[in-house]
Amino acid sequence: MFCRRAVKEDINDIQDIAVQSWHDTYEGLIPREIQDAFLNKAYSYERMEERLEKNNVFVCEKAGHVIGFTSFFHESDTSAEVSAIYVLPGAQREGVGSALMKHIWAHMQNVEELYVDVEAGNEKAENFYAMLGFTLQQEFDEVFEGHTMRTKRLRLTAAEACQQAI
Rank of each mutant, 00 (worst) to 15 (best):
residue 1 M to F: 03
residue 2 F to C: 08
residue 6 A to F: 06
residue 6 A to I: 07
residue 8 K to F: 04
residue 10 D to Q: 02
residue 14 I to R: 03
residue 15 Q to G: 06
residue 15 Q to R: 13
residue 16 D to C: 11
residue 16 D to I: 05
residue 19 V to N: 05
residue 19 V to R: 13
residue 21 S to W: 03
residue 24 D to T: 10
residue 28 G to N: 03
residue 29 L to T: 03
residue 30 I to F: 01
residue 30 I to Q: 00
residue 31 P to R: 06
residue 33 E to L: 07
residue 34 I to G: 00
residue 34 I to K: 10
residue 35 Q to C: 15
residue 37 A to R: 14
residue 37 A to Y: 07
residue 38 F to T: 07
residue 40 N to H: 15
residue 41 K to E: 15
residue 43 Y to S: 07
residue 44 S to F: 12
residue 45 Y to P: 01
residue 46 E to C: 07
residue 47 R to V: 15
residue 49 E to G: 09
residue 50 E to S: 14
residue 51 R to P: 01
residue 52 L to P: 07
residue 55 N to Y: 14
residue 59 V to D: 02
residue 60 C to V: 12
residue 60 C to N: 05
residue 61 E to T: 04
residue 63 A to L: 10
residue 66 V to M: 04
residue 67 I to N: 02
residue 72 F to N: 03
residue 72 F to W: 13
residue 72 F to H: 06
residue 72 F to S: 04
residue 74 H to Y: 15
residue 77 D to L: 09
residue 79 S to Y: 03
residue 79 S to L: 05
residue 80 A to T: 09
residue 83 S to H: 08
residue 83 S to G: 14
residue 85 I to W: 01
residue 86 Y to A: 09
residue 86 Y to R: 08
residue 87 V to L: 02
residue 88 L to A: 01
residue 88 L to H: 05
residue 90 G to D: 14
residue 92 Q to K: 15
residue 92 Q to L: 03
residue 95 G to R: 12
residue 98 S to N: 09
residue 101 M to N: 00
residue 104 I to A: 02
residue 105 W to H: 06
residue 105 W to F: 12
residue 106 A to Q: 14
residue 108 M to H: 09
residue 112 E to S: 12
residue 115 Y to Q: 09
residue 115 Y to A: 06
residue 116 V to R: 04
residue 119 E to W: 03
residue 121 G to C: 01
residue 123 E to V: 14
residue 127 N to M: 03
residue 131 M to E: 08
residue 132 L to F: 03
residue 133 G to M: 05
residue 134 F to D: 00
residue 134 F to W: 00
residue 135 T to F: 06
residue 135 T to Y: 10
residue 138 Q to T: 12
residue 141 D to W: 02
residue 141 D to E: 13
residue 144 F to K: 04
residue 145 E to G: 10
residue 147 H to Q: 13
residue 148 T to N: 12
residue 153 R to L: 07
residue 153 R to T: 10
residue 155 R to G: 00
residue 157 T to K: 04
residue 159 A to D: 15
residue 159 A to R: 11
residue 161 A to F: 07
residue 161 A to I: 04
residue 163 Q to D: 11
residue 165 A to D: 14
